[in-house]
Design a protein around this nucleic acid. Structure first.
Lengths: 365, 365
DNA sequence: TCGGATTTGTTTAGTGGTTGAATTATTTGG
DNA sequence: CCAAATAATTCAACCACTAAACAAATCCGA
């Protein structure tokens, strides 16, 4: 681990340990006590107490009455993520619908909206409605994230979204103009990336996996050790244009034999065997390159999972070099079509959980 | 950045900042002064002075006389990596040769050995010889790293190295038995991975790239932001078995149409056009998936680079979705056949540079 | 019923590491 | 030769952690 280029001061220590405590609570099956957190993290109970006090003061954690204990000793006060803490606003614009949802710190979906008129103006209205609903619950939003079916640059500029007819659209600038969102930090990301994040929280708990989303196009989100891999320019995961048959069907991208021409969502219904084989070939390439052992099929693939599974696995067995040393697990996504919006809202929450000190500092003003 | 699961104490702060200072010196074109380091890192001059004192005491840095300055003011004392600090021992075992080299903290190759009898016994002898040579220079070794053409598990076990006829060989255990190496930390890694690290230091300075090594097999090392990406089980980069022609030539791995069957080093000479096309198809898949903008051809490909280039670039232009938004750079490796050994020795040095506090603590005993 | 065992959580003194300001050191230029 | 400028060190203050003692709340056994 090469150290980041930034110096570390004492306050960074506190920031790190605040995040450590918060995430320990988030990842615990039971509601842990301060002592349990100390045991799990290696911090002393004194330090954990101090950190927890800060987190409670910032309404990121709440205390719950003591659970009935077995054995002797003072009963522990249980700690849990606060449902009244910061919430995340997820937005999605797609070919034939708009979606918005609000997720609180505990990961619960508090509000969810959908409409069928995909336009930026409609998106602004939907976002305003979601924020209104959140405010009525007393929820403060920590930010908003927008899922887009296209290539998104690191600064949030949508370089190209063919199915929306977008090219170099600055969606962030537009959303910032919406009065209800003016004060929120807004990010934009690829829908497959965000859907992968949604699956990371809601799914099987694997820290490393490939999420494949089959819609009009085919995209993938690469999650490595609970982190999204974005690539040098933020354009990773374009599995739809991996070559499957070098001299095969011409693709709208100009090349021949792209996966998208054999395993697009519409083609799965026509010829599942062909689609499965093509997917298997492309996925085997991914596994050979990245050594992933879990592949999640989402989006349009999830409903067809049973028809695709056998064909894909056959290709994986044949073409993955390390198949005999360690099998690749293939499973359907846990979330349905709302994976991307939920992942977007979740990304906001993750931001708070990864750096609670920043949120606390913001509140203190 | 999700915080690592470990708590942070003050000593971690010092460890981090020691690494920060050391790397700032390592990455500076000029020999920086304490004040320059303070400016570059954001630490105060007082802190930098204290850190530098520690690093000098541990002979990781050395002071040099003041450089002739322009303008007024007390002249700065230049700091540089110490050539008398810890050194790294790189080892390589391959089909038809053994190699060893010693690299000091500045990255200079101090000794280099090669023999033609590839066996573990010979490797032990060569390693002992290299260590002897290092000792005569007054160099203390910080560790040894072995490059192997095969799949290496995270614990260093060589699961399979077909061209060596190895299966589940515990090379670390063997090397630990060599008296001259008994006290050294030893690691084992894939040769393409280590060659990529070698190229990272010696090459064009790109922080993110794909290194492709064409020998008997074809391997690749993925470097993301100056870090090697190893995958879930340490088996990433098996580009040789990416499918290029799904129903093509049978491969020794059991599949059909693997890249290795079209672009193995021996095939490049027979039919560079075919090899270039196959490489281009596979590399386009990598770029679509990982969004890399630099590809380095090394190993057996480097000498044939001019014959391959045009064919590969044509396929990349055609098949990389984002080719129009941002071009992919293709270049030949800077290092020759010794890339892997040098990368191995370099990996040891990198370990010290990434965590000088550990080395200092070791010396203090 | 009461006292010891046990576990949780808080308090307090101590330590390590950084900051910021003041100080010392060394040069150039007028 | 002195003022300005830059480099490096010293020192008091501060912050966050640890360790150990202490306080609180419960169980259990005599």
């Amino acid at each position: 681990m090469s150290p980041s280029r930034a110096p570390v001061r004492q306050s960074s220590v506190r920031a790190h340990n605040l995040a450590l405590v918060l995430q320990t609570v988030a990842n615990s099956a039971e509601r842990p006590s301060r002592a349990a957190i100390a045991g799990a993290t290696g911090l002393t109970r004194a330090t954990v107490s101090a950190l927890v006090d800060d987190l409670i003061a910032g309404s990121l954690l709440t205390e719950h009455g003591p659970a009935p204990r077995s054995g002797a000793g003072r009963p522990a006060t249980a700690l849990a993520l606060s449902p009244d803490g910061p919430a995340g606003l997820g937005l999605e614009i797609n070919v034939d619908y708009l979606a918005a949802c609000v997720i609180d710190l505990t990961g619960a979906v508090r509000h969810s909206f959908t409409t069928g008129s995909p336009s930026l103006a409609g998106l602004g209205q939907l976002a305003a409605r979601a924020r209104q609903a959140a405010a009525e619950d007393g929820l403060r939003l920590a930010g908003a994230a927008l899922a887009v079916p296209g290539l998104v640059a690191p600064d949030g500029l949508v370089r190209v979204a063919p199915n929306l007819g977008w090219q170099d659209v600055d969606a962030i600038a537009y959303l910032r103009e919406v009065p209800a969102l003016a004060d929120l930090p807004i990010t934009v990301d690829n829908e497959a990336n965000l859907a992968a994040l949604g699956e990371l929280r809601a799914g099987g708990g694997e820290p490393t996996f490939l999420y494949v989303s089959g819609e009009v196009g085919i995209g993938a989100g690469i999650v490595l050790d609970r982190e999204l891999y974005r690539g040098g320019r933020g354009w990773s995961g374009e599995i739809g244009h991996v070559t499957v048959y070098p001299d095969g069907r011409p693709c709208r991208c100009g090349a021949n034999g792209c996966l998208e021409q054999y395993a697009g969502a519409s083609m799965v219904a026509d010829d599942p065997a062909l689609a499965a084989k093509a997917l298997g070939i492309a996925l085997a390439a991914v596994v050979n390159l990245l050594d992933l052992d879990v592949i999640v099929l989402g989006g349009g693939y999830a409903p067809s999972f049973d028809r695709l599974r056998e064909g894909i696995e056959a290709e994986l067995r044949r073409r993955v070099l390390t198949a005999e040393l360690a099998p690749v697990t293939l499973r359907a996504a846990t979330l349905g079509p709302d994976a991307a919006v939920r992942g977007a809202a979740d990304a906001v929450i993750r931001g708070v959980q990864d750096d609670p000190a920043a949120w606390l500092a913001l509140q203190a003003v």
